[in-house]
C-alpha cells in the first residue's frame, strides 16, 4: 500500500476517488432552458445491498451500478460498456441477474441487491468464485465479477426450469450442459477469451448442485 504522507491509500480508494471526481465534473452546469429541470434532481431511495439496509439521496440519473460503485464504494461490479452489451455490471436484484448499468437506482426502492462483494470474500469464497480460481476462468479479471454473478444466477435459472434458445424441448427440464451454459452466458463478454474455462467452472458447480 503506498504511503502519501499521513494518508494511506489503497489502489481501490484511488480508483473509487477518481470515479467520483469524474462523476462530479460530468454534471452539466445547466440544462437546456425551459425544457427540463435546471440542474440535477435529487431523490431518496432505500434498498438492501448485500444484506445491509442502505439509504441514499441520489441524482435521479444515477444508475444502480454508479450508486454501488460511487456512493456505496462497492467497486466489485465493473463498468465495461455502460450500455448493457458486456455484462461486466451484472448484479442479482430481487433474485434475478440484470445489467445494473441499464437501471436507475431510484427504481429500486426496497430492492434486494447482491453484488460480487455479497457472494463471498477472500475469507469465505462463494463456491462459484472458488471454481473460477480452480479452473482459471479469467485472465485480466475485469469481466469476472459480472461473469460470476451471472454464472450463479444462470444455474438458478436452469434449476427453476427456465428454457433457453438452445433447449431442444421447451417443455422439458433444461440441464446445465455446455451448450446451455454458453447460450445463457452470452450476455457476458470476456475479451481475454476465458470462456471455455468459465464453462468448466460452472459445469463443476452445476454437477455439485445436482
Amino acid at each position: 500500500m503506498p504511503n502519501f504522507g499521513e494518508i494511506e491509500l489503497s489502489r481501490r480508494d484511488v480508483v473509487a476517488g477518481a470515479a467520483a471526481c469524474a462523476a462530479a465534473t460530468g454534471v452539466p452546469s445547466s440544462a437546456r432552458a425551459g425544457t427540463g429541470p435546471e440542474g440535477p434532481v435529487m431523490a431518496k431511495v432505500s434498498l438492501t445491498v448485500n444484506g445491509e439496509r442502505r439509504e441514499l439521496e441520489l441524482d435521479t440519473r444515477t444508475s444502480l451500478l454508479d450508486a454501488a460503485r460511487e456512493h456505496l464504494r462497492l467497486t466489485g461490479s465493473k463498468k465495461g460498456c455502460d450500455h448493457g452489451q458486456c455484462g461486466a455490471c451484472t448484479m442479482i436484484v430481487d433474485g434475478r441477474r440484470i445489467n445494473s448499468c441499464l437501471t436507475l437506482a431510484v427504481m429500486h426502492q426496497d430492492s434486494e441487491v447482491v453484488t460480487i462483494e455479497g457472494l463471498g470474500d477472500p475469507r469465505g469464497l462463494h463456491p462459484m468464485q472458488a471454481a473460477f480460481i480452480k479452473h482459471d476462468g479469467y485472465q485480466c479479471g475485469y469481466c469476472t465479477p459480472g461473469q460470476i454473478c451471472s454464472g450463479v444466477a444462470v444455474l438458478a435459472e436452469i434449476k427453476a426450469g427456465i428454457p433457453s434458445h438452445v433447449s431442444a424441448d421447451l417443455n422439458a427440464r433444461p440441464e446445465a450442459t455446455p451448450a446451455e451454459i454458453r447460450e445463457r452466458m452470452s450476455g457476458n463478454l470476456c475479451r481475454c477469451g476465458a470462456y471455455s474455462n468459465i464453462v468448466e467452472a460452472m459445469t463443476e458447480i452445476a454437477g455439485r448442485q445436482a
Binding site: G84, N99, L102, V154, S164, R184, S186, G187
Partner: peptide, 8 residues
Amino acid sequence: ASGQLRNQ
C-alpha cells in the same frame, strides 16, 4: 437479447 436483459 441476453438473459440479463430478458430479466428486466
